[in-house]
Simulated scan of single mutants.
Amino acid sequence: MIQVNQVSKSFGHQQVLKAINLTVPKSHVYAIIGPSGAGKSTLIRTMNALESIQAGEILIDGISVHDKKTDINKLRADVGFVFQSFNLYPHLTTVENVAIAPIQVKKVPKKEAEEKARELLSSLGLGEKFASYPGQLSGGQQQRVAIARALAMDPKLMLFDEPTSALDPEMIKEVLDAIRKLAASGMTMVVVTHEMGFAREICDQIVFMADGKIVEVAPPEQFFSNPQSERAKDFLAKVLQH
């Protein structure tokens, strides 16, 4: 589903991605973890061209993301992206927030789009909140609306950039439960996260990044019990103490 080949990216003189190679098969869930400044968010943002790249190539379902000829809006319609901050429209209800992209981008009739929005919101535990505005919701509820909004486009792939980092601890579980449900349904997902327990439980592979490079890719059991690199051992020693 995703093929990252020799991708490099710099901001000015600082190289933040260094010749990255990664393959994510269909219906797999990959977690990208690592210390702050490792390049995790930059990498996931290059996967739908929110960030440009200076070298290499990224293919999503065989389509080159950064090729000038690629219709990026069409590609993005197939790739759901959930940000750290929820980016909801404050003047729209939850149903309207979820239905707006299918109506405007895919020209789905309003009634049909809003019906689907209600189904998605209900499946994420927000059946009581159809008429609520974002300002009336908790952070965890707003993030679940953001997930429903991404799903409304029927994406082939979901990308999550630290979806729980802006949440209070008690809100985190409800968002992780929503992502768990998606994993169980067979959705292909890449999740940048610092929730180690979640990464260990739900992901097929752990991608450990440090200093702009992928240092290690391994199944969770192997990575957490027997990391191969000193950098990963050092990272785990720090994060698993808490």
Rank of each mutant, 00 (worst) to 15 (best):
Q142I: 00
D168V: 05
I172F: 08
I179M: 08
V108A: 01
A152P: 15
A166C: 06
L124V: 00
T193Q: 09
L120T: 11
L157H: 12
A178S: 02
R118P: 07
K181P: 01
V190I: 15
E162T: 09
L182Q: 08
E112M: 10
I147W: 03
F160A: 05
A113S: 11
V192A: 07
V192I: 12
F160S: 07
L120K: 02
S185W: 06
L182C: 12
E114I: 06
L182M: 06
A150Q: 13
M158A: 14
E114T: 08
G127P: 04
K156H: 14
S138A: 03
V191S: 05
E174N: 09
A146G: 01
E119A: 09
A152W: 01
S123E: 15
S123Q: 15
K110C: 08
P155Q: 14
P155S: 13
F160N: 04
F160Q: 07
G127E: 14
E128N: 15
D161L: 04
S123V: 08
R180A: 06
R144I: 01
M189A: 11
M189L: 04
A117Q: 12
E115R: 12
M158N: 07
V108K: 10
A117D: 10
E128L: 15
E115V: 08
G135W: 11
E115A: 14
E170G: 00
D168H: 02
L124F: 06
S123L: 14
A178D: 07
